[in-house]
Design a protein around this nucleic acid. Sequence first.
DNA 1: ACAGGTTTCGGACGCCGTTCGAATTCGCAC
DNA 2: GTGCGAATTCGAACGGCGTCCGAAACCTGT
Lengths: 208, 208
Amino acid sequence: MNHTSVRLLDACERMLCEVECVDDLTVRRLAREAGVTPSSVNYHFGSQERLIVATAERVYRRLNQERMNLLNRAVQRRHPEPPLIEEVIAALVGPSVRWSLEPTSKYRVLAHFNSMSQRSRDPEIYRAIIEGVEHHRAFMVYLRQLAPWLDDAGIGWRMSCALGIRSQVTRSRVRNEVLTDHAIDFSDPDAVIARIVEVVAPMFRRLS
Amino acid sequence: MNHTSVRLLDACERMLCEVECVDDLTVRRLAREAGVTPSSVNYHFGSQERLIVATAERVYRRLNQERMNLLNRAVQRRHPEPPLIEEVIAALVGPSVRWSLEPTSKYRVLAHFNSMSQRSRDPEIYRAIIEGVEHHRAFMVYLRQLAPWLDDAGIGWRMSCALGIRSQVTRSRVRNEVLTDHAIDFSDPDAVIARIVEVVAPMFRRLS
DNA sequence: ACAGGTTTCGGACGCCGTTCGAATTCGCAC
DNA sequence: GTGCGAATTCGAACGGCGTCCGAAACCTGT
């Protein structure tokens, strides 16, 4: 990995956090921030878009690492019993919620990445990340244990639901505050995670 | 409302449905499609962005109308008893799901609008629509009836969850298919709506 | 018929992402 | 140490973008 490449990745990560709108990250500004020439972006990454994808990929790896750490801790805490469903769900959605509320975290990189992936001329660039669900398979193992009465589709579907609820929280905070009449403090990560667990955990309970 | 204004709105709605990426809708192409001059956009709407917002607003009104029709039908069907929770939820999330799967519907307008609202230099333009939740209040009335053991925050929060799950379906269809190993047919609106109802309805049941 | 406001037009501006040939730097065999 | 081919960096240029603005055209009421 070239010196200039990492300078670009670092500058891109930094700028994606500072910038309010992803269109404000222009290849000229970015190059100035990195102390290189605009055409370096195309030489090393092929396009500005691919540089942003590479930047997001790096951040995603850290987020998924944190999820896996939480999951493993939840498993070990109860071993050899199966883990608590509440802790598995918190491991799945917690890091995103927490990062999205920490001003110093790199979550804005992922937020910009997500919004870009939805309006790209070339969705192919994003497929590997968007459809990369390997790290979710680890969760499925334990969720299957905890809800053996559900088939694999049922488990996967409920994970999708949990992730959808998570996205609703990280994406549309103001909207949620209006809907709940400001009775829930969506700036308190622990409260939000508890709320998510409260509605998701019952999805995995057996129907009475 | 001027002749040129409606020509622009119509052309914008048409193009937003055809276009794969919102950046492909340029003010010059749009003007050509509408048979007017590029500067007309700025004269009548202030900016290209505001024209797109106005276009989406029109489509949103139709979608919300359909939601309200379904809700009212569900209410009348059981009157004077309270409506079925399943039908209320289906009225809330159904139209979006159905539109997102109908190739001829105008749902793509809303999809593009959503992705634009997340990466705008001037979020103020979108606030009125994004935070407009008046039409949701109608649902809260009946959900409160159906789950009097929940407080208002609890009702609003569960509605947010339902909308988040709905968004996950309409936004990341391929991702969901991978997660569920293609065991669920996400191109069948009735199946999807049933799946959503299956996980959302229990959120409103009393804890045993 | 004409005056005043509204609408339309076309050209210009500054910025964008990308391309490309020339210049520079690097790595390594001799 | 020198020379040379490959890798990297640079800067100018291109076409396209959204928007602005002054002039022209078009209405409308008197």
